[in-house]
């Protein structure tokens, strides 16, 4: 497991990193926690000419309240998100989701920014990022812009972040306690065969699904079926959850057929809603 030759640079600031990306273009790849990039490089599936290690850029790892939201630095590790009292108190879904990622070693190294940009169709965060309606800040040669969660996951392993941009911050709104992430893991990798993230608030129910299709998505059918309902009865929840994979082109592989993935999306959506309600 020996990667092909690459050059290694370690910028000290975001500005410097952006310049390096502009200079090297497609040949450069950003390294943060390295849990997707390094295995791909070792298999020589990824062969960047230049690895730009942004792991030591200062001030990109933090979790703090800003107005009604919680701002999370892009380089914050899954372990820090899992353990964050601020998140557990104000917006617990992301902390719960982080606890489902990989194992302790992965959570200690992997970062939220790196995971989101990689846009793995079975990663855990995307479901919650969608359900939370999070905002993602990116910085590039054209300056800073903010991407909404619904616009972020574009396609298989493709986010809305351009090759010359860097994610700097993720903002999630403060929520009630009525949130939950329920996942069925793929036994080998620990990634999601189907993961459902649910946020139940005054504005209604928002549901994000990961693992099922080429990208994570908002379960619009479920949300619509529950919109405006004052009492979420088990029967209503079950009927609504049955829409969790409606109209979705589910993936199939040796670990689960499209049919099973779609089914798990429904089951986990129902369970996530039920679980969230127990936290009221």
């Amino acid at each position: 497991m020996f990667p092909a030759h690459f050059d290694y640079v370690r910028p000290a600031t975001v500005e410097e990193a952006v310049k390096l990306l502009a200079k090297h273009g497609d040949d450069a790849k950003l390294l943060t926690g390295g849990h997707s990039l390094i295995p791909a490089m070792k298999l020589r599936l990824a062969r960047p000419q230049v690895v730009v290690d942004i792991g030591r850029i200062a001030n990109l790892s933090y979790i703090r309240e800003t107005g009604g939201a919680i701002a999370i630095g892009a380089m914050t590790t899954h372990a820090d998100i899992e353990a964050s009292k601020t998140l557990r108190d104000k917006s617990p879904l992301l902390a719960e989701t982080a606890s489902h990622i990989g194992d302790a070693q992965v959570r200690n190294k992997g970062t939220i920014g790196g995971s989101l940009v990689h846009a793995d169709p079975a990663a855990d965060y995307p479901a919650s990022i969608l359900a939370l309606d999070a905002e993602i800040d990116v910085v590039g040669p054209r300056g800073k812009r903010t991407i909404k969660a619904v616009d972020f996951f574009v396609d298989l392993l493709q986010s809305a972040v351009a090759a010359d941009e860097i994610v700097t911050e993720i903002r999630v709104p403060a929520t009630a306690k009525t949130v939950a992430y329920v996942k069925t893991e793929q036994k080998a990798s620990g990634f999601a065969l189907a993961g459902a993230a649910v946020v139940i608030g005054p504005g209604g129910v928002r549901v994000g699904i990961t693992g099922v299709a080429a990208t994570a998505y908002r379960a619009a059918g479920v949300e619509k079926a529950l919109a405006g309902q004052t009492s979420l009865t088990p029967d209503l929840i079950a009927r609504a959850s049955a829409q969790a994979a409606a109209g979705v082109d589910a993936l199939g592989d040796i670990h689960a057929s499209p049919e099973f993935r779609a089914h798990l999306a429904q089951v986990n959506t129902r369970r996530a809603i039920e679980k969230a309600l127990t936290r009221a």
């Binding site: 793929q186 036994k187 080998a188 990798s189 040796i254 670990h255």
Partner: peptide, 8 residues
Amino acid sequence: TGEFMDYA
């Protein structure tokens, strides 16, 4: 099933 990603 050639890697731990696929061999459980």
